[in-house]
Simulated assay, not measured.
Amino acid sequence: MKASVYHDVNDFRLKDMETPNIGYGEVLLKLKACGVCGTDIHKAIHRSVPPETVLGHEFAGEIVMIGEGVTKFNVGDRVVGAIHVPCFTCHYCQRQQYTLCPEFKQTNIVPGGFSEYIHLSERHVRHLLFKIPDSMSYLHASLAEPVACCIHGQKAADIRPGDNVLIMGAGPIGLIHGQLLKHKDVSKVIISDISSYKLKKAKKFGIDYPVNIKNENLKAVVNQVTNNEGVDIVIIAAGISSLLPEAIQLLRRGGRVICFSPFEQNSEVQIDASRFFKDEISIVGTYSVSPFEFEEAIIHISNGTIDAKSMITHEMSLDQVGEAINFAANPAEKVIKVVITD
């Protein structure tokens, strides 16, 4: 089979690899679509994975082989899933903190989503594989994983009806958050970015106040929208740690910051720590996704809560993964979501 293999920055090579074998309880999946995620971009640009890695985890595909003991699925089923599976029995899993499970990152799809086929373990098949409706295209289904991640993150935000919410970053994740929020009976949603293209998309998705921070004062907009009270929730959807002090400044008393995107390793920022006591604010980190958000994500894509057609701006082929990474990473490009298709 063919796979796009990462070797270094700007060095992806299309290679022949052995098609994975499957065992008891396992399945072989023919990849039909795999989204380019911000973490794929981060790993490729910052060399945070070793050479010979096959990236990609936002996959949708068709089951072409099932192992003995598989009863939930059949050959020909159209499915989506994710890369990591918790153990469900450890200290963290018992507290429903599934993404902190020590075994979570030890589980992986093989070799990765930027390939023709992937092997899914028995644990994946049992807990983290979901059928998609016949009416849903593989292209649109590839959004299930990032949508599920955003649902997972918003659980941590404890969003209430009538809340005012600020999203910092209008990339794919920020725009998914915005669309989900508009179906939660929140009051107003503000989103900030430096890309006029992305902010126009945000307006199309019904987000109330797109703010271009190159020529608008974000604090002034927040004060105007909230009558100088500040927002109830800030979702940081860009991997820029310097956004954290600003987010805290824009919070209402009792508000909460959700750190959704990965910050730079060992990055340090200065924040007004007095607010934790006098204003009872909080900062919460949220990572990845558990198996319990996927069915909701599939429903949101199916019923149009997530405008999948407008979100996916570009399709590229397996031999263009390196090009897709650079294209999606370039803030000057008019791109939201790139999906690799067969």
Score class of each variant (00 low, 15 high):
residue 132 I to D: 07
residue 10 N to K: 13
residue 295 E to L: 15
residue 66 I to Y: 08
residue 82 A to Q: 11
residue 5 V to L: 07
residue 195 S to T: 11
residue 149 C to K: 10
residue 129 L to F: 02
residue 134 D to G: 07
residue 257 V to P: 02
residue 89 T to K: 15
residue 260 F to R: 15
residue 165 V to T: 02
residue 56 G to L: 08
residue 241 S to E: 07
residue 264 E to G: 15
residue 48 S to W: 10
residue 228 N to P: 04
residue 284 V to F: 04
residue 49 V to L: 11
residue 312 I to C: 06
residue 323 E to Y: 07
residue 330 N to L: 01
residue 92 Y to A: 00
residue 254 G to W: 13
residue 194 I to F: 11
residue 248 I to L: 01
residue 273 A to Y: 14
residue 336 I to K: 00
residue 194 I to H: 11
residue 148 A to R: 03
residue 82 A to R: 11
residue 294 F to H: 05
residue 207 I to D: 01
residue 266 N to R: 13
residue 340 I to D: 04
residue 281 I to A: 02
residue 114 F to E: 08
residue 110 V to P: 05
residue 8 D to Y: 12
residue 85 V to S: 03
residue 42 H to G: 02
residue 252 R to T: 00
residue 162 G to D: 04
residue 57 H to P: 00
residue 102 P to N: 12
residue 121 S to E: 05
residue 161 P to Q: 15
residue 210 P to S: 06
residue 323 E to P: 03
residue 149 C to M: 08
residue 7 H to V: 04
residue 194 I to C: 02
residue 154 Q to H: 15
residue 186 V to C: 00
residue 100 L to C: 09
residue 293 E to I: 13
residue 28 L to S: 08
residue 289 V to F: 08
residue 211 V to T: 03
residue 10 N to P: 06
residue 89 T to S: 14
residue 95 R to S: 15
residue 158 D to F: 15
residue 140 H to D: 12
residue 279 D to T: 00
residue 244 L to V: 13
residue 143 L to N: 09
residue 340 I to L: 05
residue 339 V to L: 01
